[in-house]
Amino acid sequence: MLFRERYEHELRLVRGSQAWVVAGLAGALLLALPFLVKGYLVYNMTLFLVYALVALSLSVLVGLTGQVSLGHAGFLAAGAYVFVLATQHGLPYLLAVLAAVLVSAVLGVVIGVPSLRLEGPYLAIATLGFGLAVQQILTNWRLVGASRGTLVDRPVILGIDFYGDRAYYYLVLALAGFVTWMLFNLERSHVGRAFRATRDADLAAQMSGIGLARYKTLAFVISAAVAGLAGALYGPLVGYITPEGFNLLLSIKFLLMTVVGGLGFLPGALLGAGFITGLDLVLSTFRSWSQLTFGAVVIAVMMLEPAGLYGRWLKIKQFWKSWPL
């Protein structure tokens, strides 16, 4: 079911039997993997889940609404630091996560409203500036340890200790899975369609009664909130956060995940997050060549496949479906 022929196709969460099989397999794999692989890989799997959340949030903003952000590490940092401050003040885990999400969402409004008037390169540079500014403010802010960074503990919820890598993985999987499901639902709702309408033809969308300001800001808020949640999950995962960790390169990697995975497709963001995280992991073994190879792979994907990995997958599917025509 590549082309959505009827309105009902548009409304479905999972489109077609094949997609059910893929989704089911992926879910089963994510549930079973921690018991199949070694310890440090569980850590990297959790990292993948966190990055996938950011990639999804960026996919909503860049892919669905067409607003570029080169500063998503800023939202991630905001989420992580708010989470740390909240837990240091004795808030229970879930409330601290909620606080991180709320503060990031507010930051999303702060960035989103001025961004309404910006487009193209201006928006890219403004968001890039936001990411760098967050990093520099944190570097000089003594309350959160300034450039030395700060320790983050893994939580204990209702007497269950999530200190172990495997236990924490399942906690992240539960939260990330829930939010992923919500974002996929958002995409097929009237809000998701409004996002895509503003991306494709903002004037026409406005003529059809879609409030541009409202939906563009909403996209920023949702994106920032999800990235903030990812930050709250990221802090306890790595155990020690420094402002240096939320640098421009991380923002760039998030953008790479969405675009390399396939811009405008939420499954593409998941694919891209997996691809980039995996590439990082593989390349870390040959240190001095890693950056060059990373860049070369990105160039190759952009030169060969405009629609990204997911776009290529759709093309292959289409080819076999209509074969031999």
């Binding site: 860049v62 570029v68 193209g120 890219a124 760039i252 953008l255 790479l256 675009v259 390399v260 811009l263 060549w289 890693s290 950056q291 060059l292 190879t293 990373f294 860049g295 070369a296 792979v297 990105v298 160039i299 952009m302 030169m303 060969l304 496949e305 405009p306």
Partner: peptide
Amino acid sequence: PAKNQTELGLLILTLGLALALGG
């Protein structure tokens, strides 16, 4: 020769080039 000639696609291409050249 890049197939992705959109503004964002070319931006990503230069990001990749920056990483590759730096490396």
